[in-house]
Design a binder for these strands. Structure first.
Length: 288
DNA sequence: AATGAAACCTGACAGC
DNA sequence: TGCTGTCAGGTTTCAT
C-alpha cells in the first residue's frame, strides 16, 4: 500500500511511540506468505528485546533492537543486537493497540509490549513481509552492519549519481523509477507525479533522456516526496499512519487517478495508459 | 544482462 | 441481491 512518504510517516509515528518499549512475547499466524524469516525464528529472537529506534529504508520499516541488558563494548552495537524489518506490501499495516482491544481480521503478527500495548501487523492481501536482519559477522569488519535496502535513497542521492543510474537503460523511465534496485522507495503514485512535475512522458526510454530531463526529474522527485512527507502521505483508499491518522497529499495529486479530468496546468484531459504493467497517468500536453 | 508478463492474494466498486 | 469484471499504493519468478 505505501510508498516512501507513507512508510516514512508510519516509521516516525512508531519511533515516537515505541522507542524504549520492550517486547515481552510474540504471536505469528501460520500463513506462509508474510514471512521471509520463519516465524519460529522470530518468536525465538524477539522476546526480551528493547526497541531502540524505528526508521525507514526505502519502503522497509526497520526496528533497531537490543537485548535488555546488553554487554557494551565501546561504540560497537550491543552484543546480540539485531533488526526486525517489515515491508507493508500493498495492504499491510502496523498498528499500536491496547492489548485488550479486538484483534482485526488478517492479523499475521503481534508483539506484546511491556507497556501493555501490542504492535499488530495486519495485511489482507498478504504481499507484505517480515524478516530478521542480523549484524554482519566479526570476520567482515568492513561490511555495513545495518539493513541497507535494495537501492539508493531518492532523497539523498546527488544529481550526478542519479544520472548515472539511468545511463544506458533501454526501458521506459517509469519502469526504471519503479525498479527498487536503482532507487528504492518510489512506487506508482510518486513515479507518475514526479514525471509530471519534470514534464517527461512515462514511456520515454531512460537512456534517451537528456541531462536536463534527468536534472528536472531528480528535482521533481525529491520535491514531491518531501511535500508528501510534510502532509503525512497520500490516503488513496484506506491508508492510515501508526496513529490511525490519514494523510493529505492525495489532495495534491496532479495526474495520479485523475484520468479524463483536466490537467491543472493546461486543461488537457489526463490520459491513462499501461506501462510496466501498472496504471500510468500523464498529461499529453505538459509531458513530452 | 535485462525486460515484460504473469503470479501471488483479497477487497472494493461499477455495471448489469 | 448477487454475479462478473476491473482495479488496487508491490515484489518475485519465469519466459523471452
Amino acid at each position: 500500500m505505501p510508498e516512501l512518504p507513507e512508510v516514512e510517516t508510519i516509521a516516525r509515528g512508531l519511533d515516537e511511540r515505541l522507542r524504549g518499549d520492550r517486547i515481552l512475547s510474540t504471536w505469528f499466524s501460520g500463513k506462509r506468505e508474510p514471512f521471509k524469516t520463519p516465524p519460529q525464528a522470530m518468536a525465538q529472537a524477539l522476546p526480551g528485546m528493547r526497541i531502540e529506534r524505528v526508521f525507514r529504508v526505502g519502503k522497509h520499516i526497520v526496528f533497531d533492537l537490543e537485548p535488555v541488558s546488553p554487554k557494551r563494548s565501546g561504540t560497537e552495537p550491543a552484543a546480540g543486537a539485531l533488526q526486525w524489518i517489515v515491508h507493508l506490501g500493498m495492504t499491510g499495516r502496523l498498528l499500536i493497540a491496547d492489548a485488550a482491544s479486538a484483534v482485526p481480521a488478517h492479523t499475521h503478527g503481534i508483539l506484546s509490549l511491556a507497556s501493555g500495548r501490542e504492535l499488530r501487523f495486519t495485511d489482507p492481501r498478504r504481499f507484505g513481509r517480515m524478516e530478521l536482519h542480523l549484524p554482519a559477522s566479526e570476520s567482515e569488519p568492513g561490511k555495513a552492519r545495518g539493513f541497507a535496502g535494495t537501492g539508493r535513497e531518492p532523497l539523498s542521492i546527488s544529481v550526478e549519481e542519479f544520472t548515472v543510474l539511468f545511463r544506458g537503460r533501454r526501458t521506459p523511465i517509469k519502469a526504471a523509477l519503479l525498479n527498487q534496485k536503482l532507487l528504492h522507495g518510489v512506487g506508482n503514485i510518486y513515479a507518475d507525479e514526479s514525471l509530471f512535475r519534470a514534464g517527461i512522458r512515462p514511456r520515454r526510454m531512460a537512456a534517451r533522456l537528456t541531462r536536463a530531463d534527468l536534472a528536472n526529474l531528480h528535482e521533481g522527485l525529491a520535491r514531491v516526496l518531501r511535500e508528501a512527507i510534510a502532509l503525512g502521505g497520500s490516503s488513496v483508499s484506506d491508508y492510515v499512519d501508526a496513529t490511525g491518522a490519514k494523510g493529505f497529499f492525495q489532495l495534491e495529486h496532479r495526474v495520479y487517478l485523475r484520468t479524463g479530468k483536466p490537467c491543472l496546468v493546461c486543461g488537457t484531459p489526463i490520459r491513462r495508459i499501461l506501462v510496466a504493467g501498472r496504471g500510468t497517468h500523464y498529461c499529453p500536453h505538459c509531458q513530452r
